[in-house]
Structures are given as C-alpha cells and as structure tokens.
C-alpha cells in the first residue's frame, strides 16, 4: 500500500512537471507532429486489421445467438453497432494501443534515462518531463479519438461483410440495424473514453520510462510495467466512466 501511494505521489509530481510552460512552442509543435506520426498514424494499420475481424466475429456471434424468429434480423446490425461503439472500439482498441504505444513510450524514455540522454536534456536547461511526455500526451489526445472513430467504422463494415458473406444477415437488414435507434450521445461517450484512455496510456507508460534506473533489464521491466499498469487503469476507468456517463 505504501509503495502504491509512493507511485501515485510521484506520478502526480511528474504530471505537474509535464504541464509546465514549454521552453519554445515551435519546437514542441514539431514534436507533437512527429508523435502523431509515431503514436497515431503508425497504429492505423493494426487498428483497422483488429477492428475488421472484431466486427466480423461480433456479427457472427450475434447472428448465432439471436437465431430465433422472435428477434428481427436487423437486431444483429443494431447490436453489433452498439457493442462496437459503446465498448469494443474504445476499450479493446485502447488496450491494444496500451500494448503497442505504451511499450514504445516506456522503452524509449527508459532507454533515454539509462543512457543519460534525459540528464543531458536537464543539463541544457530543458525540462525533460515536458519535452518528452507532453507532446506524446497531446498527440495521443488528438489522434486516439480518430483511431477509435476509424475502428468503429471499420468494425461495423467487418460485421456487415461477415453477415453478408456468410448469408447469416442480408445486407439490407444489417444496414437498417446499423442505422436504427442511433443516439449521438453513444459516440460522445465513446470519444470521452478514448480521450481518457489515451491520457492514461501515455502518462502511465511515460512515468514508468521516466523513472527507470539501471540498464537494459530495467528498461524491459519498465516497458512491461507501463503496459500492465496502463491496461489496469483503462479497465478501472472504463467502469468509472461507464457509471458516470451511462448510469
């Protein structure tokens, strides 16, 4: 418990440092663009790949479980859309990103720590916490919602493709279901979750990287801790946000 509170305290202190005034805004703007490429654009492929299969499996399972004349076929499209929008895209894709992006951030910053590159930044008079973590946070806050929107669209397409190709749901019925009872608030809820999860992934992974001590072994440990702890945080905050926004 004591150790946990120490981590929480250090995390809060680090975040205070991260959000200090940047030294030169133009440099930070360029860094944000670089991070959008590294953390966002480079993740589009994996997000699309996972989402299309996720949507397809969801649609097939819905069709299999709702195989009764009492439930109209368009329900499969509706249920697939709701599952994707409310839970699968924001949460599952964020967990995937915690693995991909989180390990990258922890190991990158951790390696900079053990090779004294962070000390070098500090000696130059640069606030390393802001320079290294702030652009990543902004990039993720900006691009994660875009990734989640891409995931929602692609997953629904995957569901439609699976339903149509297997003949389980006629195309028209599925598309009617996708459009039925649409609530804009569901998308808002999904985007709020994606923004919160993006902050958790980058800040927690960044924290573990920033306080790495030792060598290659410890960088590996930091990377693992970054992924595991940001995943745990996502799961906990998923419950909190669902309760706050939907209950």
């Amino acid at each position: 418990m004591n150790n946990f509170l120490t981590h929480i305290g250090r995390y809060i202190l680090l975040m205070r440092l991260v959000f200090k005034q940047p030294e030169k805004k133009s440099i930070y703007f360029r860094q944000i663009l670089i991070e959008i490429e590294h953390l966002g654009l480079d993740s589009v492929g994996i997000v699309v790949f996972i989402s299309i299969f996720m949507g397809a499996v969801l649609a097939i399972q819905m069709a299999f479980n709702l195989d009764t004349p009492l439930v109209p076929l368009y329900t499969i499209g509706y249920a697939t859309r709701q599952s994707v929008v409310l839970e699968f895209s924001p949460t599952i894709i964020s967990l995937i990103l915690a693995g991909k992006v989180g390990s990258r951030i922890s190991s990158e910053i951790g390696t900079m720590r053990v090779t004294e590159q962070i000390d070098a930044l500090e000696i130059m008079g640069i606030n390393p916490a802001t320079y290294l973590i702030f652009p990543k946070i902004i990039a993720a806050l900006f691009f994660n919602p875009i990734l989640i929107m891409i995931s929602i669209i692609v997953a629904n397409m995957g569901g439609w493709l699976a339903g149509s190709l297997t003949g389980m749901v006629p195309s028209g019925e599925f598309i009617y279901g996708l459009k039925a009872f649409f609530e804009g608030y569901d998308v808002f809820y999904s985007l709020v979750k994606s923004v919160v999860f993006a902050f958790l992934i980058v800040s927690i992974s960044g924290y573990h990287g920033y306080y790495t001590r030792g060598g290659a072994l410890e960088v590996g440990e930091a990377s693992t801790k970054g992924v595991v702890n940001s995943s745990i945080a996502i799961i906990i905050f998923n419950l909190i946000l669902t309760n706050l926004l939907l209950a």
Binding site: T111, M112, T115, E116, Q117, D119, A120, I123, G125
Partner: peptide, 13 residues
C-alpha cells in the same frame, strides 16, 4: 551556461 560531456556521450539517438 553549463555544458556537460557524459561518459557515454548521451547523444540523442
């Protein structure tokens, strides 16, 4: 006002 040369160079990779 400080310049520092680290043991491993600490160049940004």
């Amino acid at each position: 006002e400080i310049g520092m040369l680290f043991q491993g160079g600490a160049l940004f990779d």
